[in-house]
Design a protein around this nucleic acid. Structure first.
Lengths: 339, 339
DNA sequence: CTGAAAGCGCTTACAG
DNA sequence: CTGAAAGCGCTTACAG
């Protein structure tokens, strides 16, 4: 309203000049070190009041450049459209904020060229460290850490690497899910999966196999189904039809991922096989609506938020203590909803 | 492996010294202005090779401080767990990246105190501009823009404000959804909503009302239902039961938001009212699984990605041209899936 | 109790 | 064709 020219923010220097003090003095009091520097209360008061009155905003760029720390971390996740990754992002952002850090975010789209280039962007921008859900064959890691970069992996660890990681206990949780089905009397339990070559998927399959073996049930490979494209309903249906044809008396279902559940639900319903609220089903991870649609399904709910939060803790710990936590792996247990 | 000390990144100065040149010269060639500055090809070659060999990474902090631009934008959304907002984030991040900008992200959790404080964090950090999905009564706007800050609103505009905004055409899309139901013969169309005081919800209700009026159907307020807590299944059910009791012959359903659909679906199914794949239903926005569960439901699919992308375009345009686009409102139309 | 000065790593008029 | 110098806005030994 008032015809005032947009006042560009004043600097430490402006305050110093206006008050007839040195930049140093102003800097000390504004950074809360006035008392320890034994600056007179009167001066401190003048400075603080002036700063408040004129709404002084320190320039973090300058500060960061000066102290060599930016209080910024980079987050590099595979995707932001997948609720799984956006949950990680949510947790990372909120945990970082608690500790006074701001997060820069980028998505690799599971492309390792992009990943490498985005990591280097973060580097340029002098983030204090990065958190990444690594793609297959990330080759930037060594050069990044050799240059002094701090890094923690979230969700996936890279086999053979000693970069600190926060992961979910895929094998054990799958084991418990499948064991639960067995306890309920299931004997012919199908395993429905996708992208079965990914580390996490392998671990889930291992849990499935171990549960069967521990129960003395032979593994029937006809029951293990990998669908290439989850979003191709036809593919899913063909796989299911084939499965039902070969093993018509299957009595249990273990989904290695939530995304396979709904297509199966619909196809079964259409075929007249009522899912009975998911009794005899078990699923890794959940989707909004499952508790309504499939109240009887057993679920291993990944505490994704914990993955994100712990990753931040681990990273900031390293940053602030100058450590690197090589070889550390934090394993987050799933929250089990068993029947 | 090699017992090499972590080589901290070299600076412009290091290069200059190593090559016996001035920082200026090095800076010119590395920033691609070597030719226009008429620096000898030989020198340019030496500099570039040296930089490449030693993997020189410019310090963006220093660069930003020097030129007064950070090539960074701030994104402040309500939440990251809601797919709607994470889609905005996705679009913003990818569009910004295309133009060489990095995004800092924060979530307001719809708390306007937090919002104000996070905006000011972005300010400190000297982002070139911010994109925000504003909460009710955002009071930081004037002081932010008066200080020269650039800003565009996404998803919601603030009534009475002339801050550039990118919004979805809530009223018109709702109108079309409801008109579609009417064309199909529905006459007693319930409207199921939540948080009906939010700008966007009001607009959707307005579209509903206008569609009815244009068709000469009187608005029956008993058909308009607002549920306070969407995640309280009991509340939703009570509201539905009450509705069915008062208007047992209702023949259509307009959901102002996708989150209300699944609870209704389940409750209806339990009550023996078959949703018939959503025939006679219309919904604002979608959820994964709807196309499978409710293939006959009409849907207004917000092009959220477009909202994010256009917001970035608008912001960067302003940043690079020094304009402010006051009063501009970009309206994104929904993609309609009608039956 | 406070200040003058150097430094963080860039950019960019200004000179020659 | 290239360099010396000032500046961006901070912090922090060092002096007194």
């Amino acid at each position: 309203m008032a015809a005032q020219t947009a006042k560009t923010n004043l600097s430490l220097n402006d305050i110093a000049e206006a008050l007839g003090l040195s930049k140093a003095t102003v800097s000390w009091v504004l950074s809360g070190k006035g008392d320890s520097r034994r600056i007179s209360p009167a001066t401190q008061k003048r400075v603080k009041e002036f700063a408040a009155k004129h709404n002084y905003q320190p320039n973090m760029l300058a500060r960061s450049l000066s102290i060599g720390r930016s209080k910024t971390i980079g987050l590099l996740i595979s995707s932001l459209s997948d609720p799984f990754y956006s949950s990680i992002a949510k947790a990372v952002v909120s945990q970082a904020e608690k500790q006074g850090y701001t997060v820069m975010i980028a998505t690799s789209e599971s492309d390792c060229k992009r990943e490498a280039s985005l990591v280097s962007t973060f580097s340029y921008r002098k983030v204090d460290g990065i958190i990444v859900t690594p793609t297959e064959g990330a080759d930037w890691v060594d050069s990044f850490t050799n240059a002094g970069g701090r890094l923690v992996f979230a969700d996936r660890a890279v086999p053979g690497s000693d970069i600190p990681s926060v992961v979910v206990d895929n094998e054990q949780s799958s084991y418990r899910l499948v064991s639960n089905l067995i306890e309920k009397g299931c004997r012919k339990i199908a395993m429905f999966t996708t992208a079965h070559n990914l580390v996490n998927m392998k671990a889930r399959q291992a849990g499935y196999v171990r549960a069967l073996e521990d129960a003395g049930i032979p593994v029937d490979t006809r029951l293990i189904r990998d669908v290439t494209s989850v979003y191709n309903q036809k593919m899913v249906e063909d796989e299911l039809d084939d499965l039902l044809r070969l093993v018509p008396d299957l009595d249990g279902f273990f989904f290695t991922t939530h995304v396979l559940v709904l297509p199966t639900y619909v196809h079964f319903t259409n075929r007249g096989i009522m899912p009975q609220g998911g009794a005899g089903w078990a699923c890794f991870h959940s989707l909004p609506g499952f508790e309504i649609l499939l109240p009887n399904m057993s679920i291993a709910r990944m505490s994704i938020e914990q993955v994100g939060a712990r990753a931040v803790d681990l990273l900031l710990e390293n940053i602030e203590n100058g450590t690197d936590a090589r070889g550390t792996t934090v394993t987050i247990n799933c929250e089990m909803k068993l029947h």
